[in-house]
């Protein structure tokens, strides 16, 4: 039975992620699930199941994310520290890390030795977060994973306000009712979201390279637009969604 040395749990607002590391700091497995309302029971069940497949007796459990307060863990560390460490461990370089999560965005400046130097986080408004796209996708009955495809194929773009994630939804409907093409509106929605993220990146100051994490970084339109807005080439992990849990697991080693 493979021995796990560390388990990182990222109980985010829209997804639950768990990563297990072995003694060579290698990812042995990762899990991404929608969080249940009773997340503590969900995590307990997952950990029991993991325990049947791996030797977790000596594994340190580190929890992060908004749901972490409800979880039993050896240590609880903020998402900012976990994403920064995950990104640093993955790319082995300092720079600017941007985590685009379900309900918040974080921009972190990471030093050459992997320490957080400064960070920013939206704390009043969900505009520019994953929920910004999700709301509209749900309203238009388009699977969230199809949103990027639509935008990437679009030959035009309709400006959408980034003032509010909720108002953007009604603005999208309004633009469609004026006869604008769905793809143009969806692309405009991506732009509004990325403008918001770009504002945070510029507010803290870019220190290349620019690295992305979080579930929304799987959206290729978002990545492309961030490159357009910042003029920087983006470094993207293979699975950006698990970087917070990965960082938590690394911090547990």
């Amino acid at each position: 039975m493979k021995v796990l040395k560390s388990l990182g749990i990222d109980a985010g607002s829209t997804t639950l992620k768990i990563v297990g590391l072995d003694e060579e700091r290698q990812i042995v497995f990762s899990i991404v699930e929608e969080p249940d309302p009773k997340i503590e029971e969900q995590v307990d069940a997952l950990l029991r199941e993991i325990g049947t497949r791996y030797d977790t007796a000596s594994a340190k459990v580190v929890a992060t994310g908004y749901g972490s307060n409800l979880l039993r863990a050896d240590e609880k560390i903020t998402e900012i520290s976990c994403h920064a460490r995950g990104i640093y461990e993955y790319f082995k370089t300092g720079g600017t890390a941007v985590d685009i999560g379900g309900q918040d965005n974080k921009v972190m400046l990471i030093s050459e030795n992997g320490k957080v130097i400064d960070f920013m986080m939206n704390d009043k408004c969900a505009s520019g977060t994953g929920r910004f796209l999700e709301n509209t996708a749900w309203r238009l009955k388009i699977p969230i994973e199809k949103m990027a495809d639509l935008a990437l194929k679009s030959d035009g773009e309709v400006p959408i306000s980034s003032t509010c994630a909720v108002f953007a939804e009604s603005e999208v409907i309004s633009q469609l009712s004026r006869g604008h093409k769905l793809a143009h509106v969806i692309k405009g929605l991506h732009r509004a979201m990325v403008k918001r993220i770009g504002g945070m990146i510029y507010a803290i100051g870019i220190r290349p390279p620019l690295m992305l994490s979080g579930g929304v970084a799987k959206n290729r339109m978002v990545v492309q637009m961030i490159e357009e807005e910042t003029g920087e080439t983006v470094l993207l992990p293979e699975d950006p969604q698990i970087i917070g849990a990965y960082g938590a697991a690394v911090l547990g080693l």
């Binding site: 560390i77 903020t78 998402e79 900012i80 520290s81 957080v116 130097i117 960070f119 986080m121 704390d123």
Partner: peptide, 8 residues
């Protein structure tokens, strides 16, 4: 943010 600041 306060927790992350103190961790930093």
């Amino acid at each position: 943010r306060v927790r992350a600041f103190i961790e930093m």
